[in-house]
């Protein structure tokens, strides 16, 4: 028998089933080998590739002042990989998931149930953040174990920078995913932004090797600011207030615009 409950139906609306939704999204994420590779493994693969294959990466730096003197290029890449992890998820899997969930009608179907389609966004954010964290931790572990690279001198600051970097990258990802008509289009747009972001983060010219003019511009881009702030957290240079504010501003701006422009339906 179905008994009509006497509690108002709206008491749990929107949150009932949220943990089941997160579990389901996590399963789906793990079933996609491409996701797992890009979000979790790619930063580590990049680090190992650069650290072992490029000559001179493990030679101590002799032509830079303190605190860089005596470090190796590969040491500079280790904190950068945390930013790469955030950007990879934020600019590839986040927009692709959201756009394809709209394209295929997953959000629309959800809208007819007591679960709100926003719940899918939340579940995706939790899962992707877990993926980025796993990717970052894996890169740090390999950096430490394989290359004996130094860890952050200011771990708390590094954590704050990591979260702000992830928030600003996810903000861009949600904005793209909310506007791109298809999953494939969203991935394409994400990739167009991804590579300039990596450049400004110093993937080709890590830390102090970046030309001054580029560095001045990079400070005001989300991933450039993240990379500079992460360097400061890692090598104990001070408090990167400007970069922290830049990342926060990007995150707030992106999520605000995304909230206004997000299209729930085709």
């Amino acid at each position: 028998m179905t008994s009509q409950t006497l509690t108002p139906a709206s008491s749990h609306t929107g949150t009932r089933g949220l943990s089941a939704l997160i579990t389901a999204e996590l399963r789906l994420f793990l079933r996609d080998a491409g996701n797992v590779f890009f979000v979790v493994a790619f930063p580590t693969v990049l680090l190992i590739g650069m650290g072992l294959a490029i000559p001179g990466m493990r030679e101590p730096i002799t032509d830079l002042p303190e605190p860089w003197l005596g470090l190796r290029a590969v040491d500079l890449f280790v904190p950068l990989m945390l930013c790469v992890a955030a950007a990879t998820a934020g600019l590839s899997t986040v927009p692709a998931y959201l756009a394809s969930y709209r394209e295929t009608g997953v959000l629309r179907r959800m809208a007819t149930t007591p679960m709100r389609p926003q719940g899918v966004l939340f579940a995706q954010a939790v899962v992707q953040l877990a993926g980025v964290t796993a990717g970052g931790v894996l890169a740090l572990a390999v950096g430490s174990l394989v290359f004996d690279a130094p860890m952050a001198q200011n771990p708390l600051l590094a954590l704050v920078v990591f979260l702000l970097a992830t928030a600003s990258m996810f903000g861009i990802g949600v904005l793209i995913g909310g506007l791109a008509p298809k999953g494939a289009t969203a991935s394409g747009i994400g990739m167009l932004i991804y590579f300039p972001m990596l450049f400004l983060a110093g993937l080709w010219t890590p830390g102090p090797m970046m030309p001054d003019a580029v560095e001045a511009i990079a400070t005001y881009t989300p991933l450039g600011a993240a990379s500079q702030a992460m360097s400061e957290a890692w090598f104990g240079l001070g408090m990167p207030w400007v970069q922290l504010v830049v990342m926060l501003a990007w995150a707030v701006l992106m999520f605000t615009v995304a909230a206004r422009t997000f299209r729930w339906e085709v």
Binding site: T5, T7, A9, H12, T13, R16, G17, A20, L21, A24, R27, L28, R31, D32, Y101, T104, G105, V106, R108, R109, T112, T113, P114, M115
Partner: peptide
């Protein structure tokens, strides 16, 4: 809560399994 809707051309995530989908959607309802 009281109205079930089967919409035209609403798909599910490609790798979601049948029983998983049913259990997931069941979890949304009172």
């Amino acid at each position: 809560e009281l109205l079930g809707v089967q919409l035209q051309e609403s798909r599910l995530p490609a790798k979601l399994r049948v029983a998983e989908a049913l259990r997931l959607y069941a979890s949304f309802y009172a």
